[in-house]
Amino acid sequence: MRILHTSDWHIGRTFHGYSTLDALRGVLGALVGEVRRRDVDVVVVAGDVFDTGTPAASCYTVLTDALREIGATGARIVLTSGNHDNAARLGFTAPLLRDGIHVITDPRAVGAPVTIDDAHGPVHFYGIPYLEPAIVRSVWPGAELRTQEHAIRHAMGLVNADRAERGGRSVVVSHCFAGDVEPTAGVEREIRQGTLDVVPLADFGGPDYVALGHIHGRSRLAENVRYSGAPLHYSFGEGGKPRGAWIVDIGADGVEGVEWMDLPVPRRLTTLRGPLDDLLTDERLAPHEGDWVCAVLTDPNPPLEPMRKLKARFPHCATVRIAPEGGADADRRTFRERVESARSDGELVDDFLAHVRGGRRATDAEREIIGDVVSTREGAEARA
Rank of each mutant, 00 (worst) to 15 (best):
G157W: 02
E132T: 14
G91N: 07
D65G: 01
F125T: 09
S138V: 05
Y130W: 15
T73Y: 07
A161V: 03
G142F: 00
H150Q: 11
F92A: 15
T73C: 08
E144S: 13
G111Y: 10
H150A: 13
L131E: 07
Y130M: 11
R89G: 14
D99C: 01
E149Q: 13
N86K: 00
R166G: 09
L63D: 03
M156H: 03
T105M: 10
L63P: 02
R98M: 09
H124S: 14
E69L: 13
G100K: 11
S170G: 06
P141W: 00
E144N: 05
E165V: 11
Y60H: 14
V171S: 04
G82A: 11
F92C: 09
E144K: 14
L79M: 15
R68W: 10
T54F: 06
T52L: 07
A119E: 15
E165T: 13
T115S: 14
I104K: 01
V62S: 04
G74Y: 07
L63G: 05
G74M: 09
V49R: 01
A87M: 04
T73W: 06
L131V: 10
A72P: 03
I101M: 12
A56G: 12
V139K: 04
A119C: 05
A56H: 12
E165W: 05
I128L: 15
E144L: 12
H120Y: 14
D162E: 15
R98T: 12
P122Q: 09
V139S: 06
D51R: 02
A109Q: 15
H124N: 11
I101Y: 00
R108Y: 01
R98Y: 01
W140G: 09
G82H: 06
S81G: 15
R98C: 02
S138K: 14
G111D: 12
H84V: 05
D162M: 04
S58C: 07
Y126G: 10
V62Q: 01
I152S: 01
T61R: 14
A143Q: 13
T73N: 06
T147D: 08
G71P: 00
P95M: 10
A134I: 02
V49Y: 06
T115K: 05
I135V: 15
V136W: 03
T64A: 15
V139N: 03
S138R: 15
G127R: 03
A94S: 14
R89V: 12
L158T: 03
H150G: 10
P113R: 03
L90M: 07
H84G: 08
S170Y: 09
T64V: 02
E165M: 08
V136H: 03
R108N: 05
G53Q: 08
L158A: 11
P113T: 13
P141F: 02
V103P: 02
